[in-house]
């Protein structure tokens, strides 16, 4: 899940900002292009794509800094597969 989530999140960010080089561990806030509009799009993308609802207490800066941290957030919020 996390690898897939990481790749999908990276694809989304690269699609929105194709002019920047970015990898999964890169802090997108340090790149300086994140505004509230993009932040909202990002949250909507994560919730829609992975079928999760992000509670207020998970909406923290550190959880959205990198594709890795967002994938980890998705992993925490996703229900465990049956039998695991």
């Amino acid at each position: 899940m996390s690898d897939t989530a990481q790749a999908q999140i990276l694809t989304f960010i690269r699609g929105r900002y194709p002019q920047v080089e970015i990898d999964a561990a890169q802090d997108i806030f340090q790149l300086g292009f994140v505004n509230s509009l993009f932040a909202m799009e990002l949250v909507m993308f994560v919730e829609k794509t992975f079928g999760v609802t992000i509670p207020n207490d998970e909406l923290q800066l550190d959880h959205f800094r990198t594709a890795d941290s967002m994938a980890a957030l998705v992993g925490r919020l996703s229900p465990a597969p049956a039998g695991v």
Partner: peptide
């Protein structure tokens, strides 16, 4: 209402939308 910190701006963005 909503999160404090950096994501608080999203409340405004969503509401205005």
């Amino acid at each position: 209402v909503g999160p404090s910190g950096f994501t608080a701006g999203m409340v405004l963005t969503g509401t205005l939308d």
